[in-house]
Simulated assay, not measured.
Amino acid sequence: MTDDLSAALATPALQAELMATAHALADAARVATLRHFRTAGLAADTKRDDHFDPVTAADREAETAMREILARRRPEDGILGEEHGTQAGTSGLTWVLDPIDGTRAYISGCPSWGVLIGLDAGAGPVMGIVDQPWTGERFIGGFGAARLERGGAATPLAVRPCANLGSATLFTTFPEVGTPAERAGFEAVRDRVRLTRYGLDCYAYALVALGQVDLVIEAGLQAYDVQGPIAVIEAAGGIVTNWQGGPAHMGGRVLAAGDARVHAAALERLSRA
């Protein structure tokens, strides 16, 4: 991030503009995703030949709607989207979009999917949204504040204390985490925590920010899978790194925690993988 961009991002006017843009993106994606959710005959194509990696008209329409808003409101910014690729910008800011994180849940009618929006200033997200259109929950983090908006009410987000693995609740999307070595690392943590649950996609990260969950461990992620959640969790007081304790905003192996103490305990086990 350049000094000029850093100074600009510190101004309330630009922060308000960027936050308003993020909300407009999330609003547009809500319309597109809810139009198709739990409807009969929704087709799902697969992006890969070796396993089922679904994509639907809702994924594509939601990202298209968000890109159209950015073309009008922030044409100088870059875009990295899961469905429509990369578009270069000139401002130093890049919107990182996942129109439906959890398409497998989406096509199954399960409301654990979400719309992810991150704003990357060059070294990671400075703002992000995890939006769950069906439940009406919008988790927002950035510029020193984190909140949950639902039904016209806003409440602050804050992670909860968790001193050790024995007291922790752990989430991951798939029981078969990553490669065999990565799975062994995950299981080394799983075997020490109080409770492990599976399958919530991005919603698990939102629950860390909400103070309901202590750890999320995943592997094989992309930047658009994590930038929105990272911004929300960090603004709520949590920590997100890779399995070596470094930056996680480009994806790969991700460890999210509400408390630095349980993060350190999990990291010690994961770093051996």
Rank of each mutant, 00 (worst) to 15 (best):
S167Q: 13
G89A: 10
R67W: 01
F174V: 09
W95M: 15
A219H: 06
V159L: 02
R272I: 03
P99R: 03
A236M: 09
D49I: 03
L267P: 04
G185D: 11
W243V: 08
G220W: 12
L70V: 10
G142P: 06
G122I: 09
T172G: 07
D201R: 12
E234R: 13
T2A: 10
V55G: 11
L18P: 01
A184V: 12
T241F: 10
M1C: 11
M250Y: 10
E187M: 14
G136D: 06
T179H: 10
G152T: 04
I140Q: 12
G246M: 07
M250E: 15
G211V: 09
A123R: 12
A184I: 05
A20H: 00
C162H: 05
E68A: 10
E61N: 09
G199M: 09
A223T: 03
A209C: 12
V115S: 04
A105P: 02
T196M: 00
R192T: 06
T11H: 08
I217A: 07
F52T: 10
F143K: 05
H36F: 04
W134D: 07
D53G: 06
K47L: 15
G81S: 07
G81E: 04
D27M: 10
C202K: 01
A209D: 12
G238P: 06
W95F: 14
L5P: 15
D131W: 06
A206P: 04
D214S: 04
L18V: 00
L42W: 00
I129D: 06
L34S: 02
V126K: 05
